[in-house]
Amino acid sequence: MTFDWAYAAAILPALLEGLVITVQATALGMVVALTLGLAMAVVRQGGPRWLGWSVGQFIEFVRSTPLLIQLYFLFYVLPEIGVALSPLATGILALGVHYAAYCAEVYRAGINGVSRGQWEAAASLGFSPWQTWRRVVLPQALPPVIPALGNYLVAMFKDTPLLSAITVMEVLQVAKITGAESFRYLEPLTLVGVMFLALSLAAAQLIRGLERRFGRLGRAA
């Protein structure tokens, strides 16, 4: 058996439709991960001690367990407790929470990079904790971590095919179904691999650009 180009061309539109779902799920998942991750990082640093500790444990736990299980867990448990989400929404939530744990660690590194003097200067001027975060700490902590967050965006994109496990019609699921119908897995799966490779390489280029732009930020003032 050899690669059938005509067949590959025939299934390409369906696969691209699946890819759109994949990209959408990644984008929305990243929105969840970026916001939830930031909230966790801030609470961990500035919240009450017991809460910071709990968040730290949660992050550790999420990072140590497989996304696939977390995905199944939400998929089966949410309906049992009365939360009815579509498979796609469940998948986005799982991706978001999983990567929020990673993003929180990235944010934390950025926050730790802001010197104590900055916190003290803010306090001496009477800034509230909220104002200190918003005006002083985060504007300095965030730009340097943008490339690292970009890397997790790419990692999340590569994990999005897991959503096929809960019947989301993203690109891998489309490829599998197409393959099962025709008994030809070679073309759909190879095409999916090429799509991912192309997008990942493009994203890596983009992140290198971000690194050049945000790699350093003067903090000595």
């Binding site: 891998l172 599998k176 070679l186 991912f196 490779l197 990942s200």
Partner: peptide
């Protein structure tokens, strides 16, 4: 690194046998 583990698994499990 550019493709994902699940796609690689599927490719080796479903597609590679078709190449013998």
């Amino acid at each position: 690194r550019g493709t994902s583990a699940l796609i690689q698994l599927f490719w080796f499990f479903f597609a590679l046998p078709l190449l013998g």
